[in-house]
């Protein structure tokens, strides 16, 4: 039978969909916001950040759709109870599973790598790293540990970068970013060792969700604080109103 990356059967239903859906929603919201800011200021970093978040979001779509389709396909064949039919559908499911999860791993790693490049303003040999990402994605089909360790390296580096940034500049939202990526990095550790017990996988999913929820909290703070008008604007809005009134009179 096809293995679902050590996901217990009871978890592979609604809870799994909700968990992944929330993470996806957070990622696409930040991507959309960053793209809107790019449209406003035409700074390439905002566009790259939007692409990085979108890639991670699309990776979640690939994971979610692969899980849902493969999961329900297998249940369907179990209802038939015919050996030949079950076997053929299993083959198709396995191929779909391999392709789907390849895209999940590839897009996830590419997204985190792009994020790392944007924030560190690094100009290293990207082609070499992309090749490394493709190889990791391809060869981690039967060994999840390689993929999770690679993701751990990226997320831990991002978390460390933000922690350092927070210590220097003391921006509260940056602290939230450091916590968020720290949680996501720790969840990768649990995923990497989840073959020992399925509860570690659930723990990983919970930690990952917590990481994305902290990211959402930071994003909400960012929108709210940025939306409040400063004194200069309030003063000039009043001035504008009085000017319009005097012009009308």
């Amino acid at each position: 039978m096809v293995s679902f990356a050590f996901i217990p059967a009871w978890f592979n239903g609604y809870s799994f969909v909700i968990f992944e859906f929330i993470s996806m929603l957070v990622l696409f919201s930040i991507a959309f916001y960053s793209y809107r800011l790019y449209k406003f200021c035409k700074n390439k970093s905002y566009k790259d950040l939007a692409i990085a978040f979108s890639l991670i979001g699309i990776a979640f779509i690939a994971k979610l759709s692969t899980n849902i389709i493969v999961y329900y396909k297998i249940l369907e064949t179990q209802d038939f109870g015919l050996f030949t039919l079950t076997f053929q559908t299993m083959q198709a499911s396995t191929i779909f599973y391999i392709i789907g999860f390849f895209f999940y791993r590839f897009l996830m790693l590419l997204g985190f790598y792009m994020f790392y490049l944007v924030i560190t303003k690094s100009e290293e040999n990207t082609l070499f790293t992309i090749f490394f990402i493709v190889v990791t994605s391809l060869f981690s089909t039967n060994s999840y540990t390689i993929f999770y360790i690679t993701t751990l390296i990226f997320t831990a580096t991002i978390a460390r970068f933000y922690m350092k940034n927070y210590k220097e500049k003391k921006v509260q939202n940056t602290k939230f970013l450091a916590i968020s990526f720290g949680l996501i990095a720790f969840s990768q550790v649990l995923f990497a060792i989840s073959e020992y017990t399925e509860y570690l996988y659930i723990g990983g999913e919970l930690l990952q969700l917590a990481g994305y929820l902290v990211l959402l909290r930071m994003f909400m703070r960012l929108i709210k604080s940025g939306g409040s008008k400063n004194k200069k604007c309030q003063k000039s809005e009043q001035g504008l109103k009085s000017l319009t009134t005097s012009l009308m009179l």
């Binding site: 800011l37 406003f40 905002y46 924030i119 940034n165 939202n173 940025g226």
Partner: peptide, 13 residues
């Protein structure tokens, strides 16, 4: 612009 600057500062762009 203020929103953009806060975003830039937070993400370290």
């Amino acid at each position: 612009f203020k929103k953009m600057k806060e975003f830039e500062e937070t993400f370290g762009l």
